[in-house]
């Protein structure tokens, strides 16, 4: 590189660098959480922590960067990072059985972030009331499961009853647990978004 070239280097600002790093780390955490599964009593389906990661992205990073983290997660997965459940990756997963849920993740993170933070400027989520956190998380969950069920109907030709049974009802006990965990973590003051 010549001396004249070096003057054309366009540096990324400090705040933006920090936000990109936070979003990328959260996207990688979503990938790691997708591989963690727990069996829950009285349910045939084990739960992963993937959606808990989406909830926390919306709450801790806010609507813009929480949604951005989910977009990075999907893009990296589509391009080959083994971030989806069972270390799957590729564009094919996006049009597969879980495609609807995946596409809904950024939307859910944005909605959760908007309800929790009120607008795009971030507030300390631990100071938000339980009702507000609950409203955000339930809205996000409804969006994810609605898109997931519609996705199963469109992509795999499930019947409405089949899609709701296999794609939503069996997972609801686990989601209630994750919503409770997300609220407990955020209200515990044990972490603060860097």
């Amino acid at each position: 590189m010549t001396a004249s070239d070096s003057s054309q280097v366009d540096l990324v600002g400090a705040e933006l660098t920090r936000n990109i790093v936070r979003a990328a780390l959260f996207a990688a955490l979503l990938g790691a959480f997708s591989q963690v599964s727990f069996s829950i009593p009285f349910s045939p389906a084990p739960i992963t922590l993937q959606l808990l990661g989406v909830y926390l992205a919306g709450i801790l990073l806010g609507p813009v960067w929480g949604g951005g983290a989910c977009v990075l997660y999907l893009l990296a997965g589509a391009l080959g990072a083994p971030v989806f459940a069972e270390r799957a990756s590729g564009l094919g997963v996006m049009v597969g059985p879980t495609g609807g849920y995946l596409f809904a993740m950024p939307i859910a993170a944005v909605i959760i972030g908007m309800i929790v933070h009120g607008n795009t400027s971030l507030v300390d989520p631990s100071q938000r009331g339980v009702g507000r956190l609950l409203a955000g998380l339930i809205s996000g969950t409804v969006v994810i499961y609605t898109c997931g069920v519609v996705g199963m109907m469109v992509l795999l030709d499930f019947t409405v009853q089949g899609a709701i049974t296999a794609g939503a009802l069996v997972f609801l006990p686990g989601e209630a647990l994750k919503i409770a965990a997300a609220i407990g973590i955020v209200r515990s003051d044990a972490i603060t978004a860097a």
């Binding site: 990324v12 933006l16 990109i20 790093v21 979003a23 990328a24 780390l25 996207a27 990688a28 955490l29 990938g31 790691a32 959480f33 591989q35 963690v36 951005g68 977009v71 990075l72 997660y73 893009l75 990296a76 391009l79 080959g80 990072a81 083994p82 971030v83």
Partner: peptide, 21 residues
């Protein structure tokens, strides 16, 4: 550019986060 940078970081950071968890 931002998306490209972010995706590159996710590929690099995923093994680190997997090991952490």
């Amino acid at each position: 550019r931002g998306l490209g940078l972010g995706v590159g970081l996710v590929f690099r950071l995923l093994p680190v986060l997997l090991a952490d968890v």
